[in-house]
Amino acid sequence: MILAGHCMCGAVAWTCSGEVTRNLVCHCTDCQRATSAPFTAFLGLRSEHVNWSGEIVHYESSPGTFRGFCPSCGTRLYFRSDKWPHEVHVHAATLTEPAEYQPHAQVLMRSRAKWLDQLQSIPIHEGFQQNPADWPLPGGSG
């Protein structure tokens, strides 16, 4: 199987010719802060099967744990840790076809954002048909 992906601006790209070791949605607070999102979906890939092109900058978020990102657009590309020395955890949103991603499990549910349970019951809009400033605020009268 060949997988491929890239950052938002296209300055960094990756390909993988090996099998996926894990497909997870992680709800840990580190992933939430690192991605500014309530969870992160990622693919575990064998490091030796992933080829990168372009410049990648690393941030050591804790000892032995590194997060790679594109210095041009800031896209978070992957997470790697000494805990899993032969794997790189590539963010699924960087896949060329991210809509085809299928996670196998969710982890660290104790940190899951509670408001995710409400997503099915809140209004849905395909775009900004209404000015967000005009939307009623929770608990407010307007």
Results as ranks from 00 to 15, higher is better:
residue 37 A to V: 07
residue 7 C to N: 02
residue 56 I to P: 05
residue 41 A to L: 02
residue 65 T to H: 00
residue 73 C to P: 08
residue 133 A to N: 05
residue 51 N to F: 13
residue 29 T to Y: 14
residue 59 Y to L: 11
residue 54 G to T: 01
residue 30 D to V: 09
residue 104 H to D: 15
residue 85 P to M: 00
residue 82 D to K: 11
residue 14 W to Y: 06
residue 13 A to W: 06
residue 72 S to T: 12
residue 79 F to A: 10
residue 116 L to W: 06
residue 115 W to L: 04
residue 58 H to Q: 10
residue 34 A to R: 06
residue 118 Q to L: 04
residue 110 R to C: 03
residue 114 K to H: 14
residue 85 P to W: 02
residue 77 L to D: 00
residue 60 E to N: 05
residue 101 Y to T: 05
residue 140 G to K: 07
residue 13 A to H: 10
residue 12 V to A: 04
residue 131 N to V: 11
residue 95 L to A: 01
residue 3 L to R: 06
residue 93 A to W: 04
residue 31 C to R: 12
residue 121 S to M: 08
residue 109 M to S: 13
residue 107 V to S: 10
residue 109 M to E: 14
residue 31 C to H: 04
residue 94 T to L: 06
residue 104 H to N: 14
residue 41 A to M: 00
residue 77 L to C: 01
residue 80 R to T: 07
residue 55 E to R: 14
residue 108 L to Y: 14
residue 57 V to A: 13
residue 97 E to C: 03
residue 92 A to Y: 02
residue 109 M to V: 15
residue 27 H to W: 10
residue 127 G to I: 11
residue 132 P to H: 09
residue 20 V to G: 06
residue 127 G to V: 03
residue 23 N to E: 15
residue 109 M to A: 11
residue 107 V to D: 08
residue 38 P to W: 01
residue 115 W to S: 10
residue 70 C to E: 02
residue 67 R to I: 02
residue 128 F to V: 08
residue 94 T to I: 04
residue 55 E to S: 14
residue 4 A to W: 04
residue 1 M to D: 14
residue 90 V to C: 03
residue 50 V to K: 03
residue 42 F to R: 07
residue 101 Y to A: 04
residue 93 A to E: 05
residue 45 L to M: 07
residue 119 L to M: 08
residue 69 F to C: 02
residue 43 L to H: 03
residue 24 L to M: 12
residue 40 T to P: 11
residue 83 K to Q: 13
residue 83 K to L: 09
residue 35 T to G: 10
residue 41 A to E: 05
residue 7 C to D: 01
residue 92 A to K: 01
residue 59 Y to V: 05
residue 60 E to Q: 04
residue 66 F to E: 01
residue 38 P to G: 02
residue 114 K to P: 14
residue 6 H to E: 13
residue 54 G to H: 05
residue 97 E to W: 01
residue 33 R to Q: 08
residue 84 W to N: 09
residue 112 R to S: 06
residue 37 A to L: 06
residue 24 L to F: 09
residue 65 T to S: 01
residue 62 S to V: 00
residue 141 S to C: 08
residue 113 A to H: 14
residue 102 Q to S: 11
residue 133 A to T: 12
residue 90 V to N: 03
residue 112 R to M: 05
residue 11 A to L: 11
residue 61 S to I: 00
residue 63 P to S: 05
residue 28 C to Y: 05
residue 115 W to H: 06
residue 13 A to G: 14
residue 128 F to A: 12
residue 82 D to C: 10
residue 115 W to P: 13
residue 21 T to P: 12
residue 30 D to N: 13
residue 107 V to K: 09
residue 58 H to F: 12
residue 24 L to Q: 10
residue 26 C to D: 04
residue 134 D to L: 07
residue 88 V to D: 01
residue 119 L to T: 10
residue 17 S to R: 13
residue 62 S to C: 07
residue 82 D to R: 12
residue 39 F to Q: 00
residue 92 A to D: 04
